[in-house]
Design a protein around this nucleic acid. Structure first.
Length: 597
RNA sequence: GGAGCCGUAGUUCAGCCCGGUCAGAACGCCGGCCUGUCAAGCCGGAGGGCGCGGGUUCAAGUCCCGUCGGCUCCGCCA
């Protein structure tokens, strides 16, 4: 076999006149009768190879038998293309390789879809023939970019003294958080390992062990429903640091992220990154991971309507809710477009969508007739309403209004192309509450995770909350307890999150109590952590980045599937391998598993 | 668990709203011609019965119901 001396995509000026050997795939082939052009492709790119019938009849004949995606090796000399025949679309477009010797290493059946152009393919086809999909330029570049991202990240961790440590995949199921993937134990009938949702506890324990700074680029597994930005297995850049506070963790994160943007994209991010509070994010954007690349901010109208005759608004306010609006300025939406948006919010569970269209200085709407003069004036003022604007309202419990208007805002932003997609909007969300009340579970749950430290000055509130019997009073106290947590948001995606952890056993036990995790359960599930905290655990904190999301955002992609080599469909299926699948009864028996229909 | 969009040649799509030459286009594939193309060109050819199952109808890609699959979203995702 002729062995490669250079990648196709690397052929350049210095190769002129030289002989080289190329290995690759027939990307395209053009037969002009007496001359054949072969675009030969490998990982690094494409170069045109040429053979003339007159000068090399044997090779010509063989070349004529080539088809798309045949695997070939060839020996030839590099020459400059004749003037006027250069191809500026190719990096190697000024050169061509005159084939001297040609070897067919393998043939290929006709492909199920073209590899040589970027036609849109259904996700199913892409994944079923992922090896072909990955030959396509955009996918290849996505994975090569991802590869470079690993390299930069590893280097930065190395420079900053982080130690790479692997943590177990077969571990223990923990309550709280996502649903676990379980692995039955053959050696211990009836017992199960859980695949890790994150290496959270292990990295904390590594801090107790004194490693000071740990990192890992690691798979995490969560058995939850999929989304464009969520796969059941995904990759985190995970790290933890000892003897630090939030400023240290955030500033290291900024260094890591800005270095990646600089080196991989040539984009200079301004550091330190901007910070906004959780409350502010919700107030202004109705989301804890807002996309701030466009306006349409939420406007609070509660005070305007506090005495309103309009039943819908009044009831919402009387029930402790809010009235908020967004002004889609200059949109001149038609009735049909407004109806479409109404349908959208209804799909989120809203009853309807109140709106006002401003036309020729008049408010055109089914609801203005319920407003008093003062209300109307105040409304126009707060929303800066002008002709051409359409204002949407939501009046309900705070969470519902945030959900409805936050999603509506995003929907409009996307649908009407309001988003400046060239921009990277990078910022921290901080000042999260430590706990929130969960209606369904009828208890407090952690906003981040149960190991997140509250602010020092809020610990007293926690202790008081534990003593208080009255639930409303308890809620009130707990509401104001802030977590030492921080999320990194880029372009409306949560790409990372972390916190300073609890490093004292007493505080950890207090939080477990507030989460209504019994002492027994805490001992059973987290005993090893509590025990570790007894033996000189240093103050520590860290963060984890969603690597797939980060890479997708950097590449301007909407779905993380495009930066994962072998992702799953929305139903969690791998069309390439057919996983998940049934297994042999023998396997089940060994695992002491009986399948119940 | 729920909502929406989609499912027609190998691929990407049109046709579905207004049932009855509606089974089409492009690319790909096969054969032929052609010495400078690079989404090569020109000529010719093969290829699907419209995801699947019911129903309505004289007649169904076309209407209705169910089901499966893909995607997007809500729930869920500490």
């Amino acid at each position: 076999m002729l062995k490669r001396t250079k990648y196709c995509g690397h052929v350049c000026e210095e190769d002129l006149g030289k002989e080289l050997v190329l290995n690759g795939w027939v990307h395209r082939i053009r037969n002009h009768g007496g001359v054949i052009f072969i675009d030969l492709r490998d990982r690094e790119g494409i170069v045109q190879c040429v053979v003339e019938e007159k000068t090399n009849p044997e090779v010509f004949e063989l070349a004529d038998s080539l088809r798309s995606e045949y695997v070939i090796a060839l020996r030839g000399t590099v020459r400059r293309r004749p003037p006027g025949t250069e191809n500026p679309k190719l990096k190697t477009g000024n050169y061509e390789v005159v084939i001297k010797e040609l070897e067919v290493l393998n043939t290929s059946e006709t492909l199920p879809f073209p590899v040589d152009e970027e036609t849109h393919l259904s996700e199913e086809t892409k994944l079923r023939y992922r090896y072909l999909d990955l030959r396509r330029e955009s996918m290849r570049e996505n994975l090569l970019f991802r590869h470079k991202a690993y390299q930069v990240a590893r280097r930065v961790f190395g420079e900053e003294g982080f130690v790479e440590v692997e943590t177990p995949f077969l571990t223990k199921s923990t309550p709280e958080g996502a649903r676990d993937f379980l692995v039955p134990s053959r050696l211990h009938p009836g017992k199960f390992y859980a695949l890790p949702q994150s290496p959270q506890l292990f990295k904390q324990i590594l801090m107790v062990a004194g490693f000071d700074r740990y990192f890992q680029i690691v798979k995490c597994l969560r058995d939850e429903d999929l989304r464009a930005d969520r796969q059941p297995e995904f990759t985190q850049i995970d790290f933890e640091m000892s003897f630090v506070d939030e400023e240290d963790v955030m500033s290291f994160s900024e260094k890591l992220i800005s270095t990646m943007f600089k080196e991989l994209l040539g984009v200079e991010l301004k550091t330190p990154f901007e910070r906004i509070s959780y409350a502010q994010a919700l107030e202004k954007y109705g989301s804890d991971k807002p996309d701030r690349r466009f306006g349409l901010e939420l406007i609070d109208l509660s005070s305007i309507f506090k005495n309103t005759e309009f039943k819908v608004f009044r009831q919402a306010l009387e029930n402790g809710g809010v009235v908020k609006g967004i002004n889609f300025k200059g949109s001149n939406l038609s009735r049909k477009e407004i109806d479409e948006l109404t349908q959208f919010v209804q799909s989120l569970g809203a009853k309807g969508l109140a709106w006002i269209k401003v036309e020729d200085g008049k408010l055109n709407s089914p609801i203005v007739k319920f407003f008093s003069q003062e209300e109307t004036h105040a409304l126009i003022e707060s929303t800066k309403a002008e002709s051409g604007d359409v204002i949407f309202f939501s009046a309900d419990k705070r969470e519902v209004v945030y959900k409805v208007l936050g999603n509506l805002r995003l929907h409009i932003g996307k649908k009407y192309n309001l988003i400046d997609t060239k921009r990277f909007d990078v910022f921290w969300v901080v000042d999260f509450p430590l706990l929130e009340w969960d209606e369904e579970e009828n208890r407090f749950v952690s906003l981040h995770h149960p190991f997140t430290s509250p602010r020092e000055e809020d610990i007293l509130l926690l202790q008081e909350a534990l003593r208080v019997q009255d639930l409303e009073e308890k809620k009130r106290l707990i509401q104001s307890v802030r977590a030492r947590a921080y999320d990194l948001v880029i372009n409306g995606y949560e790409v990372g999150g972390g916190s300073i952890r609890i490093h004292k056993k007493e505080l950890q036990e207090l939080v477990f109590k507030l989460l209504q995790i019994s002492e027994l359960e805490a001992q059973e599930k987290f005993g090893f952590l509590l025990e570790a905290l007894r033996f000189g655990a240093p103050p520590h904190g860290g963060l984890a980045f969603g690597f797939d999301r980060l890479v997708a955002i950097m590449r301007g992609l909407d779905s993380i599937r495009d930066v994962i080599a072998f992702p799953k469909t929305q139903k969690g299926i791998c069309p390439l391998t057919g996983a998940p699948d049934y297994v042999e009864p023998k396997q089940l028996k060994e695992l002491h598993i009986k399948v119940v229909e």
